[in-house]
């Protein structure tokens, strides 16, 4: 373990820990835009600068490992002035259209501008303008809002193993794009959307469906494959308007295109809404009492005529444990047969 002090507090962390992680371990806040705990440190946004005694310039805490006896200061008038200037520089080339931005209220840049009280910008200058060139149905890109933190690039490479995008060009012209600015060859997992600190990357289906107000967030489990990923349903007026996933979950916050973007079936207009009984070849609307009495009667008659084993039931790998248990109990105890199975083999 390495002993150091941060803002005068003694902190002890394993060798190789960065100053940023040591500070967060000790619950000392340091602002960041390009850092993500599951990605390699980047040192791009420079907001995490701190003073280290004996070094005569600020260092980026996300890329500097701790050393024994290190004395770190995370905040001082000079450091805060530098951080504010960095933010002003970023915001000098930002649309600042928070009023209509999908990310408002959940935006790291907006939050930092709030904490640093940046209302007017003394550094106004040239702005980047990009032609929109998005033909994918999942991810909305607003490249003017991109702050080049590189999280999307790193996540695509380091976590997803795809490497669909990277930063091209230099300086003011730098931008995130597919190789040679050709068409995107992407799995549409949306991992990049989940880590983007600004409104540069959002879900296309999210647009104007609700941001923070009147949204309920419910933690549940994804209905698709057997990985069992935790998902958060964002619900407004009895409609799922967005799906996300927390980092402290089995799936570490990562999802696939179905889990993240495949939720609109829930509120699809074609959902079955009423019981139906076939009459003269046609399925006709019925009440629950009519449908259930009809089924009980027909199953009872089949059982009386041909025996319980002439009835079979297929339960569902889509349904809950409780429902599956009740289904087989119904088949075995109420109908009287072991003819119960589901699609495990299919």
């Amino acid at each position: 373990m390495i002993d150091l002090s941060i803002n005068g507090l003694p902190v002890s962390v394993p060798e190789g820990t960065t100053i940023l992680d040591a500070a967060r371990f000790a619950d000392i806040p340091i602002p960041t835009l390009c850092h993500h705990p599951k990605l390699t440190p980047y040192g791009g946004c420079r907001l995490c600068i701190v003073d280290v005694k004996g070094i005569n310039r600020p260092v980026t805490s996300c890329t500097t490992p701790v050393a024994a006896g290190m004395e770190v200061t995370t905040t001082s008038p000079t450091i805060e002035k530098l951080r504010k200037t960095i933010l002003e520089l970023i915001l000098s080339d930002h649309p600042n259209d928070c009023m209509v931005c999908e990310k408002a209220g959940d935006c790291t840049l907006q939050e930092l501008a709030y904490f640093y009280g940046i209302r007017e910008n003394r550094l106004d200058g040239e702005r980047r303008v990009y032609a929109k060139k998005d033909d994918n149905p999942f991810i909305e890109r607003n490249m003017e809002k991109c702050i080049l933190c590189g999280k999307c690039v790193r996540i695509c490479d380091e976590v997803q193993g795809v490497g669909a995008i990277d930063i091209a060009y230099r300086g003011f012209n730098a931008k995130v794009c597919p190789p040679f600015e050709k068409n995107l060859d992407c799995e549409f997992c949306g991992q990049c959307v989940s880590v983007c600190p600004t409104g540069a990357l959002t879900g296309k289906a999210w647009g104007q469906r609700g941001r923070q107000k009147d949204i309920k967030e419910i933690e549940t489990i994804c209905p698709y494959c057997g990985c069992g990923c935790s998902i958060t349903l964002h619900v407004r007026r009895n409609e799922v308007i967005r799906v996300s996933s927390r980092e402290d979950t089995l799936n570490e916050g990562w999802l696939c295109p179905k889990g993240r973007f495949g939720y609109s079936f829930i509120n699809n207009a074609a959902r079955l809404k009423t019981p139906l009984i076939r009459e003269e070849g046609q399925l006709k609307e019925a009440t629950w009492d009519e449908a259930l009495d009809f089924i009980a009667d027909r199953l009872g008659k089949v059982k009386a005529k041909y025996g319980a084993d002439s009835i079979a039931g297929l339960s569902s790998a889509r349904c809950t444990n409780e429902e599956n248990y009740l289904f087989q109990k119904f088949m075995r105890a109420a109908v009287g047969t072991n003819n119960v199975d589901h699609c495990a083999r299919l």
Binding site: E219, C227, G228, L233, N267, K273, T274, E322, E323
Partner: peptide, 27 residues
């Protein structure tokens, strides 16, 4: 209710919405 994933993990499924129309829970 609960779902059990591929590694035998029993996880909690939570109600977020009301079903459409007269649709009812399977249970």
């Amino acid at each position: 209710g609960t779902f059990t994933n591929t590694e035998r993990r029993v996880q909690r499924v939570k109600k977020a919405l009301n079903p459409p129309g007269k649709a009812r829970e399977d249970s």
